[in-house]
């Protein structure tokens, strides 16, 4: 039932389009070709990609004429009940005109663009399911045999097809999983926490231990240091899950490339700013500097006063 709900508005839209198109076609007569091209482009950018897929399919399949006749009838039936009764006669007339127009056009069979548009209007909902499967099949240049101009969306489709061909890993896995060992977090006494494999994690992330240390301490709002056997001692009680969360945020901000999300990056310092250089896609962008921000007084105020004075 949901599908129906989704499709209903599109039907209405088509209706509008069609009427607009009819008027143009009726007025323009022979010049209908140019107006018909503009009609769908003007109605909404959102519809465009879909439309284009459709016409790709249609040109590939060459089923046009039969489908047109069948679905026009269906559409007639489906759209009429929705419209208020007062408008019914006019719309019926419109559709009659539309049919006539279609027939005239197809008898000529030279105007490919016009044909395309009509089919878009008629076949929109029916081929929606199909075109997702067919997009990959129709990778050839559809305009090569014809003398029409290629559209922007067709070119876009072509670029993406080529991209998919050249690097299949992008399609299949989207991205390789970045596997990391979980941080080993142990409590020391009641007030301190040890992050045992801290340097190991720094190595897997290819980051300076100092940078990660700064980030961790700033985020957790505590103090800490790396001890003799390369483990990090943080003041305060923390669980592994909490440290994991902070590490995840660190990786998102300072390790993975912001453009392609590859973890294969280098962090460089350039004129007081940190830059993240991606080794895979070559992008380079600045990352936020680590600031601990405001720290409230949590310890004993008397002790602080004694220190400063």
């Amino acid at each position: 039932m949901d599908d129906d709900m989704v499709f209903d508005p599109s039907l209405k839209k088509k209706k509008k389009k069609k009427t607009g198109f009819d008027i143009d076609a009726a007025l323009a007569g022979e010049q209908g070709e140019s107006t018909s091209v503009e009609a769908p482009a003007g109605t909404g950018d959102v519809d465009l990609p879909e439309d284009d897929n459709l016409d790709l399919d249609n040109f590939g399949k060459k089923k046009k004429k039969k489908k047109k006749a069948v679905f026009n009838m269906e559409e007639l039936e489906s759209t009429l009940p929705e419209t208020p009764p007062a408008e019914e006669p006019e719309q019926q007339e419109d559709e009659v005109i539309d049919d006539l127009d279609l027939d005239i056009d197809f008898s000529k069979t030279k105007k490919k663009k016009k044909k395309k548009n009509i089919e878009e209007l008629v076949l929109e909902d029916d081929t929606k399911g199909e075109d997702q499967e067919n997009v990959e099949d129709v990778s050839g240049d559809l305009w090569s045999g014809t003398d029409r101009d290629y559209t922007y969306d067709e070119l876009l489709e072509r670029v993406f097809d080529i991209m998919r061909e050249k690097n299949p890993s992008m399609v299949s896995g989207k991205k390789q999983k970045f596997i990391m060992r979980p941080p080993q977090v142990v409590r020391i006494g009641t007030k301190k926490t040890s992050f045992a494999n801290f340097t190991e994690i720094c190595k897997t992330l290819h980051r300076q231990p100092k940078h990660l240390l700064d980030f961790l301490l700033a985020e957790l709002g505590t103090s800490g240091s790396v001890d003799g056997n390369s483990q990090l001692i943080i003041k305060g009680r923390f669980q592994q899950k909490q440290i994991e969360n902070v590490l995840r945020r660190y990786i998102k901000e300072y390790v993975t490339c912001h453009t392609c999300r590859s973890p294969d990056t280098i962090l460089q310092k350039d004129t007081r700013l940190f830059f993240l250089q991606c080794e895979t896609c070559g992008s380079r962008c600045s990352v936020a500097s680590i600031k601990s921000g405001f720290q409230a007084v949590t310890g004993k105020r008397a002790a602080i006063r004694a220190k400063t004075a």
Binding site: L220, G221, T222, G236, R237, Q295, A296, T298
Partner: peptide
């Protein structure tokens, strides 16, 4: 910035 700081105990 919304931060959290640990005090004594929980």
């Amino acid at each position: 910035h919304v931060r959290i700081q640990q005090r004594n105990g929980r």
